[in-house]
Design a protein around this nucleic acid. Sequence first.
DNA 1: TATTGATTCAAACGTATGTTTCAAACATAC
DNA 2: GTATGTTTGAAACATACGTTTGAATCAATA
Lengths: 228, 228
Amino acid sequence: MHASQTNLAEPAPAADPTTKDLILFAAEELFAAEGFEKVSLRAITQAAEVNLASVNYHFGSKDALIDAVIENIVTPINRERLHRLDSLESELAPDSAIATRDILDAFLRPLVVAIKESDLSEEMFFRLMGRCMAEPDYRMPESLIPQFQEVVQRFSDAAARALPKLPHDLIVWRLYFSIGTLVQSLMHIEALDSFSGGKSGQPSLDDLLTRIIDYCIGGFEAPVSENK
Amino acid sequence: MHASQTNLAEPAPAADPTTKDLILFAAEELFAAEGFEKVSLRAITQAAEVNLASVNYHFGSKDALIDAVIENIVTPINRERLHRLDSLESELAPDSAIATRDILDAFLRPLVVAIKESDLSEEMFFRLMGRCMAEPDYRMPESLIPQFQEVVQRFSDAAARALPKLPHDLIVWRLYFSIGTLVQSLMHIEALDSFSGGKSGQPSLDDLLTRIIDYCIGGFEAPVSENK
DNA sequence: TATTGATTCAAACGTATGTTTCAAACATAC
DNA sequence: GTATGTTTGAAACATACGTTTGAATCAATA
């Protein structure tokens, strides 16, 4: 039996980190910096100061390690998303709808929350998140598929109530467009604040998020042009 | 001396395609389907029915081949973008500004135009385009940097005139957000029209583009929320 | 202490990759 | 027709990778 499951909400018992955790942490960091395919198991085990064979021993394969890392990142975010949507819906007067801004905020802001709980730097975390959704050969880990379906379902339903004039399939499209805007920003975050640089330092994370949310709200509520 | 330069607007002289062209075409196709890193030179040369060594002979290295493919795709698109912007500006009454929709259309639609001139299928072409801008380890070929700087400069200037209330750096950000929306859609185009499926077949390319442009216009023109 | 099962370790395996080599084939001009 | 520069061809090179192996080590139990 392995000493530690891939425990998502580990209470961090002051104990020494297990080999498995050392691998997970080193892998997170390297994947964020260089991408899943580019980082070799040798690089990971060297950074983690563990033996090369221990990855296959504890995870089974490199692919399974990648899945584990992605699950560790994405699962708490999706949980937080649903939690926030729950709150919004429970505070709601009957027959009224949540504001588009609140929906998008509940969808996007959990990323920022996740950062505080991560050991990665902001930039690394964002890069990793972006990779999780943008890697060209990315296949979603099995366990995340139903999770994501639920999230998309719940949020598109909420958006449909907020924007009753939009056909439902357009709602889903625009939700994906919003994800795209976010992901692409995360992937190229250094490019973004390099040119926005010149003026004092980089904008804070919340500033970036605010800008993205502003943009996505506009996109979501945009009128639909006729298709000739 | 090589028999054919990497000629962008080749008049297609009925002559046999050179080895170099065979490589370029096979590489385009495979890169689009599987990504730059994943495709081996052996796969390319086998598909092109040329010798393995000819890639290094004609291009120097795999990286240089990747650059050549990207340049072949992106350069005509950027040229078309600037051409369309030129037209819009020349038809303009003095002291008036181009509509946001026209600016975004001039920026995004050249992709569709490029498809018609490409030998790739629509889907493959879009995938390749997406990869050109979304590959995690993507470094832009040297020759494209000034090209892109000009495009961003010209379009953000035009947008600044259309939206004089927006601070200039926000304009550039939103231009990048629009690119992100587009790129991400291109990369996951099959996912998009799979769920939109159920209803009759896939939406046409122009439909997709129209939806993206609608969304981006909304994003571009969205009000700016106060940063507390 | 002796035994068992889990874990670590160094080393090797098998395979795939980008690149290089150098001789053969080709085309072109003298 | 011979000489010259270019292009092709089959094979090998060097390296890197994910994975496997089997012995050594550790931890806990009886």
